[in-house]
Design a binder for these strands. Structure first.
Length: 420
DNA sequence: GGCAGACTTACAT
DNA sequence: TAAGTCTGCC
């Protein structure tokens, strides 16, 4: 879901780039994005419950593409659902089931084309499907990490902690987690006519289909690739649009000295995010106006005066809303992630003295939980101290010494027990 | 103009 | 599934 309207809002902070420049980088990939697209190609089989590996092969094409660009992928998978999202998940499950019934009805009425369309709407990426991809990745010696909770937070952590220079995702939330630069496909629309196919004979006359975003050394880039059909004939091409954190003030129309990531994150949460719906009548514009007008640095106190700042006499900011706001804020800062070096679950950024965490249940501290997640596989992770923009390379590369787990192949069934 | 909500579309082949 | 488009309301 992300932040509604965020990408167009950030147009002033963006510019087009090409992915070929990032050979030699490590990318953390939101595996769900690929799985979902791959699943569409075999929606009918999945809904019927037939065996298929079409979605795995689809993901492998992307992995191969990255490897061919000398880009090392780390696939990141969603872990357990956040308790706060239980209602949303229930709603989605019911909608999928309704669509399944609808598809069955259409088939009975001999309307297969319509049925196929409805089937695409009941696609659910199951842990079993994710595990099929993980198994294939192991065969290919591609690293996989299952996030304790959301892949987004794990992707941002891998990026900020120096394990991955690039994150591939389709969710603009990555910016709120603190990544410095983001590229999104929505922006591409206005620029697409200027994109040319870099390799191959034809040039793009219409907007090219866009697949992903990548984060490079705290920068997220979105890059798009020609559709599969064209891809086979033309090879892969990656162009995208970059959104830079250093330019976010331009989108908010504030002086750089007056800008902070706290303000940006608070604005986004106010406009409505995955963890908290917005107050009636509040979207990005009003949220931005309020954040710029308030001089109060304590956001909870500032919120009590939001109605006055926006001349909205009817705007009620209840104590409950303010409480939920702080939890949402904490979720973007301190959501639990897996530290592959220490091999344990840690907050994305450390909690300062007396600071409240997002209030998530305590995960098992012992190694069994990570074993169940599949996070004790032999990693080939490397850590980077810094990114040198001048030579476009990472410096201070260090290989992490990770002990191989001898039980690596014997615990596949454990994976399925975690997502309850 | 900004916003919310309903509706439509691409996703892959 | 998520993002874009359209419409009506304030």
């Amino acid at each position: 879901m992300g932040i509604t309207g965020l990408i167009p809002f950030l147009k002033a902070a963006s510019r087009p780039v090409n992915v070929r420049e990032y050979s030699g980088c490590t990318v953390a990939v939101d595996a769900y994005c690929w799985l979902h697209k791959g699943a569409i190609a075999c929606a009918e089989k999945l809904v019927r419950g037939d065996e298929t590996d079409v979605y795995v092969n689809y993901c492998v094409k992307y992995i191969d593409m990255l490897l061919s660009h000398n880009v090392k992928p780390i696939l990141v998978f969603d872990g357990r659902h956040l308790p706060a999202k239980a209602e949303t998940e229930k709603f989605r499950r019911e909608r999928r089931n309704n669509n399944k019934r609808k598809a069955a009805d259409l088939l009975r009425q001999d309307r297969p084309d319509e049925a196929r369309n409805v089937m695409k709407a009941c696609i659910d990426i199951t842990p079993e499907m994710a595990y099929s991809l993980i198994k294939r990745c192991r065969e290919m010696c591609v690293d996989c990490i299952v996030a304790p909770y959301e892949a987004d937070a794990q992707l941002a952590y891998l990026n900020l902690a120096g394990f991955a220079h690039i994150v591939i995702t389709e969710d603009s939330d990555l910016l709120l987690f603190g990544c410095e630069r983001v590229i999104s496909k929505k922006f591409l629309k206005g620029f697409s006519s200027t994109f040319k196919v870099q390799r191959g004979e034809c040039s793009a006359q219409k907007p090219l289909p866009l697949t992903s975003q990548i984060v490079i050394s705290n920068c997220i880039y979105s890059y798009f690739i020609l559709s599969q059909q064209v891809l086979f004939k033309l090879d892969l091409v990656g162009n995208g649009l970059l959104i830079e954190q250093s330019k976010l003030h331009l989108a908010m129309k504030v002086h750089p000295d007056k800008f902070s990531m706290d303000k940006f994150r608070h604005m986004c949460i106010l406009s409505g995010c995955d963890y908290l719906n917005s107050l009636p009548g509040i979207g990005l514009s009003k949220a931005c106006k309020f954040i710029k007008r308030t001089a109060e640095t304590n956001i909870s106190r500032a919120l009590t005066k939001m109605g006055a700042h926006l001349n909205m006499a009817n705007l009620v900011v209840s104590p409950e809303y303010r409480e939920k706001f702080l939890v949402a804020d904490s979720m973007f800062k301190h959501q639990p992630v897996f530290d592959p070096t220490a091999r344990k679950v840690i907050p994305m950024t450390p909690l300062s003295e007396g600071e409240q965490g997002p209030g998530l249940e305590q995960l098992p501290a012992d190694i069994s939980y990570q074993l169940a997640l599949g996070n004790l596989d032999p990693f080939t992770l490397e850590k980077f101290d810094d990114w040198d923009p001048d030579c476009n390379k990472m410096v201070g590369r260090q290989r992490i010494n990770i002990i191989k787990n001898p039980n690596f192949h014997s615990r596949s069934s454990l994976y399925f027990s975690i997502d309850t």
